[in-house]
Design a protein around this nucleic acid. Structure first.
Length: 265
DNA sequence: AGGACGCCCTGTTCGC
DNA sequence: TGCGAACAGGGCGTCC
């Protein structure tokens, strides 16, 4: 699930559950999730310490320890967090736990990821990680002027541009489609052909879509009825004009769009 | 530079 | 109903 709104939901979840708890143990089931650190070294770094704050940049979540480096969490396509307590009555242990952090209150923070495409690492500072991975500014930290500059510096189709994490961090396949739908722009429209009106619609849609998705806790069922997102299925219709939605492939991923509302200019 | 593709993984859905 | 193929909200490396 994890694009910017989903990761923001994970951040708030972690903030509300796992801050300030003393870590007693770290268990790693899939070491391939760990990047640049062994399971043992991760344990040594975390155990006896506490998370004190978090920071999100695009799709990356950083958790600060009371001492030492930050933990970086990236969720791939199927990663998620869940805070739970082992209970004899209701053993609600999540499935596909790859990394489990135990706290001294008996609860656990599980990083679950069935496909194991997510990554966990340590970094001295989020800014260092962001620079070394050449990530662009967080999508919600971007102002209109900077947005226009970035568009002007590029060529090619708008959808892959929106999804390029090195230009803007946080937008993936689903939200790129949603933003373009709300802005009424065709995904293959070239960035250098967007007129002033289109750029204004695009920037506003970028902000409003992400903000509304965060308000909905990234849950499709809670999103506005005008959203395309919950309709990503064959034969679904446009919430605005009732046309049958169209799909097309782009870079190995599926694009949903409304052929009536999103015309190539 | 932009874009397509294969690959990393595995659970779910689709189509014959 | 059954089974293999295709697909799934990410990112990286390679190639043209």
């Amino acid at each position: 699930m994890p694009e910017l709104p989903d990761v923001e939901a994970f951040k708030r979840y972690l903030d509300a559950t796992a801050l300030r708890l003393r870590i007693t143990r770290v268990d790693v089931a899939a070491s391939r999730i760990l990047t640049g650190i062994s399971a043992r070294a991760l344990g040594r770094t975390l155990v006896h310490h506490r998370f004190v704050s978090t920071l999100r940049h695009g799709k990356h979540l950083f958790a600060r320890l009371d001492r030492g480096p930050w933990l970086m969490l990236h969720f791939g396509m199927t990663g998620s967090l869940s805070y739970y307590k082992e209970d004899k009555e209701h053993h609600e242990r999540p499935r596909y736990i790859q990394v489990r952090i135990d706290f001294d209150n008996g609860h656990h923070l599980a990083y679950a990821d069935p496909r194991k495409l997510g990554r966990i690492a340590l970094t001295d500072r989020p800014s260092e990680f962001i620079e070394s991975h050449r990530l662009g500014p967080d999508a919600l930290a971007l102002d209109s002027a900077r947005f226009r500059e970035l568009v002007a510096a590029s060529r090619g189709a708008i959808k892959p541009w929106l999804m390029n994490q090195q230009i803007i961090a946080g937008i993936g396949n689903i939200y790129a489609d949603e933003i373009l739908f709300q802005a009424r722009i065709h995904p293959q429209q070239s960035t250098d052909t967007l007129d002033k009106g289109a750029l204004t619609r695009l920037f506003r849609a970028l902000r409003s879509v992400l903000e509304k998705a965060i308000a909905a806790q990234a849950d499709p069922a809670r999103m506005p009825r005008t959203f395309l997102l919950p309709r990503r299925q064959r034969g679904a219709r446009c919430p605005r004009c009732d046309s049958t939605l169209k799909t097309m492939a782009s870079g190995g991923r599926t694009t949903y769009l409304c052929p009536g509302c999103q015309r190539l200019q």
